[in-house]
Amino acid sequence: MTFVRICVLLCLTTLLAACSRPVHVVEKEAFSRMASQMTRELQARKLLDSRGNYFAAFSLAPQEGYGKILFQRLSPDFMLQSDAAHDVYLGENFAATVLPDSRVKHWPNGFSIDHATQKITLHMTAIADWNGDGQDEWIVACTVEPKRGGRSRTYYLLVPPPRSAVEKLRGTVAAVNECFGLACTLYVRDSKNIQRTAADPLAPPTEVHDLTPGLQPVTEPPGAKKLPASGPAERPL
C-alpha cells in the first residue's frame, strides 16, 4: 500500500511540474507584487498556474548575499533615458553611483539608494527559467521613485547568474510597471534571448496592459495541497 501511495505521489508531482516551471522565491513580498502586476505574463510563461500559484523549487541551494552582489556588480544601464539622465547614474555598477550625500541601506537580498533627486530600491525577487531555454535567471525588481514629481517605474530584470566571483552583471528588462499616481501601465517585453550584455531594454515591446490599482477587488487564490519535500510544491502567493 505504501508503494502505491509513493507511485501516486510521484505521478502527481511529475504532472504538476509539467504544468508549471519551478520557481525559487527569494523575497516573497517582492514576488507577490510582481505576480499581482503581471499575472497573465507569468501564467503564459508557466511560472504561475491558472489559480495564481507557483511551484517551489527545492533543488536550488539557498544563497545569501544577493544584495551585496547586485550592489557591487549590476550595471544600471538598463534604465530608460529619462531615469538615467541624472549624474547619479554615471557608474559601471550601483556602488559607483553613490554620491557623498546619498544614503544607502543594505539587506541580505537587496538595497536602497536615496539620492537627492530619486530613490532606488532593488530586490532580488526569484530564480526561474523565464524563457524556457533550460537556463535559470535571477529575477530582480528595481524601483525608481522621483522626488520632484513624475512617473515612478519598477523594472523587472532578468540577470544571468554570474559564472565567477568577479563577473560584471547586466540585466535584460522583462517588463516595466510605470505609475503616475494610481494609474499604472505595464510594458512587457518578449524576452526570448537573454544576453549577458543586454541591448535596448524595451525594444520591441509586445504587450501593454493598463492597470488601475484599487478599482477591482483582490482575492486570495485557493489554497493548494502540500506535496512531499522530495519534489516541487505548489505554493499560493
Results as ranks from 00 to 15, higher is better:
124 M>A: 10
81 Q>E: 15
119 K>L: 09
128 A>T: 04
213 P>N: 09
38 M>I: 07
188 V>W: 00
89 Y>W: 15
64 E>S: 15
150 G>M: 08
13 T>E: 06
22 P>W: 01
131 N>M: 04
224 A>E: 12
102 S>H: 00
21 R>S: 04
170 R>L: 04
136 D>K: 14
158 L>T: 00
58 F>S: 02
209 H>Q: 15
213 P>E: 13
179 C>M: 06
92 E>N: 15
17 A>W: 09
223 G>V: 08
45 R>P: 12
194 I>W: 00
21 R>D: 14
56 A>I: 04
175 A>I: 03
208 V>E: 12
101 D>K: 07
144 V>W: 01
161 P>W: 08
229 A>D: 12
157 L>W: 00
148 R>A: 15
68 K>A: 07
66 Y>C: 07
58 F>D: 05
224 A>H: 02
232 P>F: 02
91 G>I: 03
25 V>Q: 00
59 S>W: 12
113 I>S: 02
191 S>V: 10
120 I>N: 06
176 V>W: 00
116 A>T: 09
48 L>M: 06
37 Q>H: 09
83 D>C: 13
85 A>V: 11
83 D>A: 15
163 R>P: 05
2 T>A: 07
22 P>H: 02
93 N>G: 02
221 P>E: 09
2 T>Y: 11
94 F>D: 13
94 F>P: 10
91 G>E: 05
200 D>Y: 10
229 A>M: 10
110 G>E: 06
194 I>N: 01
25 V>I: 01
104 V>F: 03
52 G>V: 01
230 S>C: 02
188 V>Q: 13
185 T>G: 09
157 L>S: 07
74 L>F: 06
98 V>P: 00
149 G>L: 06
83 D>L: 14
55 F>M: 11
150 G>K: 14
217 P>S: 09
13 T>G: 09
56 A>L: 15
91 G>T: 02
84 A>H: 12
187 Y>K: 11
207 E>D: 07
64 E>K: 08
205 P>Q: 07
160 P>G: 04
172 T>Q: 04
151 R>E: 13
75 S>H: 06
98 V>L: 08
79 M>E: 13
216 Q>K: 15
228 P>E: 13
80 L>V: 13
34 M>Q: 03
100 P>K: 05
216 Q>Y: 15
3 F>Q: 15
148 R>N: 15
1 M>Q: 15
202 L>I: 05
52 G>M: 03
46 K>L: 11
149 G>P: 05
131 N>V: 02
74 L>Y: 02
52 G>S: 05
175 A>F: 00
83 D>V: 08
43 Q>N: 12
48 L>P: 01
100 P>H: 03
183 A>V: 03
147 K>Q: 14
224 A>F: 05
16 L>W: 01
107 W>I: 11
7 C>M: 12
19 C>D: 11
180 F>R: 12
29 E>K: 13
186 L>H: 09
235 R>G: 07
198 A>Y: 03
10 L>D: 10
138 W>R: 06
170 R>C: 04
103 R>S: 11
181 G>D: 11
225 K>E: 14
11 C>L: 15
228 P>L: 06
5 R>Y: 10
